[in-house]
Amino acid sequence: MLITQLKNREAIDALISGTCFIVNCHGCGEVSFPAAEAQALQAELASQGKVTGILTTDYICSPENMKVNLESRRSEIDEADMVLVFSCGVGVQTVAGYLEDKKVCAGCDTYRLPGFQGVTPLEYDCEQCGECFLNLTGGICPITACSKSLVNGQCGGAKNGKCEVDPEMDCGWERIYRRLEQLGRLDLLKRPVQLHNYATDDEVYKQNN
């Protein structure tokens, strides 16, 4: 569900002070990990004598799994001035939380991938907005299918049925309109004005705590 991209070279160079121990997480590798670029970069760092060890594993977001992996390389980690993690943001936080006294840095930036069943990227997306609008839109999500996440209909930016932000992306509200037309449910567009509630995350947070 998360994809990673290597930070640019200057940014990574700026992070490294002294020697580092490198962790690569290939857990979501079936989706995306810049393996070849990371490998080339790490080989170069190693040739400069900046690397005490490289651990390539998977699912470091699982604290138990991360722990057994890090402990298997403890001496190399202790020897290094910092730990450089090539994973999504969850992985970096898990390692940083475990090695609390160590400088832990991220070598990657993380992007979201549509869908969250497994790590299979889906053609559908759900932002988990907490107040499903699909019943009003014929099952096409206005939050993710519209680049402005509009909930009251098409904006004036659509051209040839495409979005103003990306001429290759279908206008979400154009799709919704067509779907409702096909279902004979254009009456749904006459519903009262919709307001997006941005406080639904707090509801979940409070419920779980």
Partner: peptide, 23 residues
């Protein structure tokens, strides 16, 4: 409010116009 009468999705625009009137 505004409306795009010569839009290529004129029916979607009309439906939006209706919502604007309602609002």
């Amino acid at each position: 409010a505004v409306v795009s009468p010569c839009s290529d999705s004129v029916d979607a625009q009309l439906s939006k116009m209706e919502r604007k009137v309602m609002a």
